[in-house]
Design a protein around this nucleic acid. Structure first.
Lengths: 144, 144
DNA sequence: CCTTTATAGTTTCATTTGTAACCATTTGCA
DNA sequence: TGCAAATGGTTACAAATGAAACTATAAAGG
C-alpha cells in the first residue's frame, strides 16, 4: 500500500558527519573543559586571537563561523577571567581590540598542543591519500 | 622569545568538520523547522522510528547517537503532537514501544524526500571517487 | 551640518541542552 | 525467596543558545 521509504540513516551523509564531528570536537573539549573551565566557544575565540591578535569581536565571529552574540558572551567571560584583554579601537570607538593576556597565552600553550595531538590521533587513522582527499572535499563543500 | 605556535584553524580538521557539519545539518533543519515546528532531535527520532518501528526510547537514543534525556523530551513532544504513539512493552513495563502515527507518517513522507534531496545537492558537488573515499573515511573514523 | 542608515557590540527573554538525581521495574544472585 | 544492583525513562535545575530589541558610534547623503 503505502511506500514510505524511510531514510537509511546509517548511510545518510549529514547524519554521519554530524556524529563524527560531535565526537571529535567533544573529545577535545572534554579535556580542556575539565582543566580550565573553558567552553568550546571560548577556546575557539582564544585560538583565533592567538593567530590573529588585535581582532575585533566581529572578526573573531567571522573567522570562527560563530555568531556575534556567542562571541560577545565568550569574550566577556574571558575578559572577566583575565584571559583576554579588551581595548577600544583608536579610530572607531565601537570596535574592540582583543588580545590574549599572559594568563591567556599560558592556557593557550597548554591547550593548543593538546588539540594538535588529538588531531594527530584522528588523522593518524587515515592514509595520506585519504587525508588529502578529505581536505579537498572540505574545500569543495565548505561555504566561503 | 616565546614560541606560541597558534593553531592554524583553517587547516584544523575538527574545526573544519564542525563548521561543515553544522552548515549542512542546519540547512536541512531550517526547512522542516519552519514547516512543521520540528526540531532536529525530533526529526531524527522520527526517521529512526520510520526505519525501526516498535523501538524503545533507549533504542532510538542508541541508533541516533543521542542522549536518552534528549530522546525522552523529543518523544514527549512528538507524542503530545500526535505524531508518535507510545505504548508499554508487554514483557517489560519499563520499556516503551514507539511508532509513528498516521500524522507522523504524513510528515515523514514530506520531510524524508526533502532531506534526501538536500543530501543529493551536497553529494552532487563531489565526484564518485571522492564520495566513496569520504564514506570509507567515515567508516574508519566513526565510533562503534 | 543634520538626519538617516549602517555597524559593533551588549542585553534581555524564551527555549534548548546537559547533568544529576530520581522513580519504577526488572534482573542477578546469595 | 528477598535484597542489592542494573536498566528504562522522567524530572529538576543550572548553564548554554538564539532571536530580537537596544545602545553607542560611525558613515552617507541631502
Amino acid at each position: 500500500m503505502h511506500d514510505h521509504e524511510p531514510l537509511q540513516l546509517e548511510h545518510f551523509l549529514p547524519y554521519r558527519l554530524s556524529i563524527l564531528s560531535n565526537t571529535i570536537s567533544g573529545d577535545i573539549a572534554r579535556e580542556y573543559q575539565q582543566q580550565f573551565f573553558l567552553s568550546m566557544t571560548e577556546w575557539r575565540a582564544m585560538a583565533i586571537l592567538a593567530r590573529f591578535p588585535d581582532s575585533s569581536a566581529r572578526e573573531v565571529a567571522e573567522r570562527g563561523a560563530m555568531d556575534k552574540v556567542a562571541v560577545s558572551r565568550a569574550v566577556s567571560r574571558l575578559v572577566g577571567a583575565g584571559r583576554v584583554s579588551r581595548d577600544t579601537h583608536d579610530d572607531d570607538r565601537r570596535r574592540s581590540v582583543l588580545n590574549l593576556t599572559p594568563a591567556g597565552w599560558k592556557i593557550h600553550d597548554v591547550v593548543a598542543p593538546l588539540a594538535r595531538q588529538h588531531e594527530r590521533d584522528v588523522v593518524g587513522k587515515l592514509t595520506d591519500e585519504e587525508l588529502a582527499t578529505l581536505m579537498g572535499i572540505l574545500d569543495k563543500l565548505s561555504p566561503v
